[in-house]
Nucleic acid binder design. Structure first.
Lengths: 358, 358
DNA sequence: AGGTTTGCGTAAACCGGTTTGCTAAACCGG
DNA sequence: CCGGTTTAGCAAACCGGTTTACGCAAACCT
């Protein structure tokens, strides 16, 4: 048992020891030109001898800035980190915050209350991901006077926003399947993270609308039984296909709203003895790094996830620097279909008899 | 252009408006029983009308605690998030910090200097991952008087530590291959993140020692040309096998120090027309969630990564709570080999002629 | 009536820094 | 030798809260 809390030296200790005022010590570090050279060195000597380090919290208080940005997401933190999409997004955010010398604080629903967590967060601004205006938290942040950038949420005039064309991306995925001749398609949807969320305006809602537009234009009906939802994880995707199969569905293709889920679908397909793409075509969404490494490599809708993080951070830091929300703070990033090897024309014969092939 | 920085109400504003002292306002929130009921409600009313929220930084200063823990790693943040191992570890840390109401701050080498970053970090303690005692930063943290828990680093008597049996895990992986009859093995090693690091004591060094012990006991020489290193990523693993192949090596098995690298090896093998496990056996390390979903599912050394994060966080919070480092703060977690389907006996015939099979 | 307790609030010190005047001494040219 | 400008450093205010010590009136005793 060792006592850990060694009383750390304060500025007053250094001042006393060096025989100067607190102000002098502060100057010695922050504007040494205001002091004579020898005084500065003496103070520095004393400071190092005492192992003095300015207290970061005290500094934050007077500087009235924290040099830290927050990343706010509606899910609990463990779920956030379990999501490879988010890891990639965080990668982008971190790249620019780090380069600019900002810290990164993850904010999550503290004991269920995002609002409380926001109030406690010592950040200069926030990147808010996956929360639309229907969430009360957003209002809390605005009230707190914190600049913020919204990601994947309908734009809010006075705040920055970074979005992608979910609808278009989803359309291109569906169109690809239709072009290949598929008519029996399963949608593997992302469960909205927060039940209270406005479904229609969520990422999930927008992608579904895109799928539906193309499918219905091709005369394919997308009944609710053909839409199976789960968390955006490997397991979520695996469970989704398995469940659909148990329910008697025999689709020739699956449209997954995330690559993580698509990987799970691949696994479930193997488990069911279905070959991809011969028996089942799979299309993902996101184009995560992992998607190049699956077997077969995944056909998916690319979105620049890392760039999204970078742009969000850049927008936020720009806002922080100017103290104003610029006019051109709304970025819409592109999506595009990347065709790899998990999609092909549907099998000539339908459903059943493929079981047990392998 | 909207002005964002609305001047937020301070405690003095509320006090003036409610016709009471600052102290009264503080009491109204923190110990309302000291005030009469009607005064409390009046203060609350004024506070909500003014949208008053106590300034978190000021509170930190007086409370002399931040209710935040830091996670310190030697790599740059983007690399950290790109590493699925780390995401899983963070998941564990986050699970317990979140439950206990602590924030999570990621600390990385600010402009190259970890030491400076540490000095700036407003945390009550740190989880330090992948830094051994040879790193000067560790000394900085100690000097700062911050409690810390070291992960994957040789134990430091007065600090908590969480480790796994890297040597034993590596041995079991190598033994598995030896038992299958492999004699020509490639080691796909993790590049030490920091060049200055003490190689021998790093995770990489410990695992290598484990491989080597078993291999040499079986009379298999592990020359330096059979050890190829890279970053612990998909691409790192892919590049590693490709490079070895180019150099003329034709191993029948690969021992990867991380699952991420193993996935890359799988991909490279496909690219080279090698079937796994018929032509090449692959063993990973970590047992990440993804490893169940690769094709074939990966034989790997399981380590409880998420639990590691949880334990580290628990140890740290316990230290924080008691203000002392307890005696039993050193946890050694178990590893075990998980045999899936990426390993088999080596092909009868050696090397060359398998090329172009597929 | 006089002394004590209780309830309610306040003033001031404090957390650990930064910043703004301001003063005293050194320096300068005339 | 004098008035004016630098230079070096200090005291005090400030950032925005919390906490301690105390004042004062009304209520409670005997």
């Amino acid at each position: 048992m060792t006592e850990l809390r060694v009383r750390r030296a304060r500025i007053a200790d250094v001042a006393r020891e060096a025989g100067v005022s607190k102000a002098a010590v502060s100057f010695a570090f922050n504007s040494p030109e205001r002091l004579s050279a020898e005084t500065v060195t003496r103070i520095h000597e004393v400071a190092t001898a005492l192992e003095y380090r300015p207290h970061p919290v005290a500094r934050m208080l007077t500087a009235r800035q924290t040099t830290t940005v927050g990343v706010l997401s509606p899910q609990a933190l463990p779920q956030v980190f379990a999501n490879p999409f988010f890891a990639l997004f965080a990668e982008g955010v971190a790249a620019v915050t780090e380069e600019r010398g900002f810290g990164l604080l993850f904010i999550s629903p503290l004991h269920g209350s995002l609002a409380r967590a926001v109030g406690r967060a010592t950040v200069d601004g926030m990147v808010v991901v996956g929360l639309d205006e229907s969430h009360p938290e957003v209002e809390v942040i605005r009230r707190a006077g914190l600049p913020m950038v919204l990601v994947d949420a309908p734009a809010w005039p006075e705040h920055g926003a970074v979005e992608i064309d979910d609808h278009g991306g989803a359309r291109s995925a569906a169109q690809h399947l239709v072009d290949l001749g598929h008519r029996d398609v399963l949608v593997v949807a992302i469960e909205p993270p927060v039940p209270g969320g406005n479904r229609a305006m969520s990422v999930s809602g927008r992608r579904l609308a895109g799928y539906r537009a193309v499918l219905e234009a091709a005369g394919i009906l997308l009944g609710p039984e053909r839409i199976v939802a789960g968390p955006a994880t490997f397991d979520g995707g695996e469970a989704a296909l398995l469940r659909a199969w148990e329910d008697g569905l025999r689709p020739t293709a699956a449209l997954a709203m995330s690559d993580a889920m698509a990987v799970g679908v691949l696994q479930a397909a193997r488990h069911l003895g279905l070959r991809v793409p011969e028996h089942l075509s799979v299309v993902g969404f996101d184009d995560l790094p992992i998607s190049r490494f699956t077997d077969p490599p995944l056909t998916t809708v690319h979105q620049p996830v890392r760039l999204k993080g970078e742009e969000a951070a850049r927008l936020l830091l720009a806002t922080l620097a100017t103290g104003q929300a610029g006019a051109a703070t709304h970025r819409l990033l592109e999506t595009r279909l990347v065709v790899r090897r998990s999609t092909a024309a549907p099998p000539r014969t339908r459903g059943q008899e493929v079981v047990g092939h392998d």
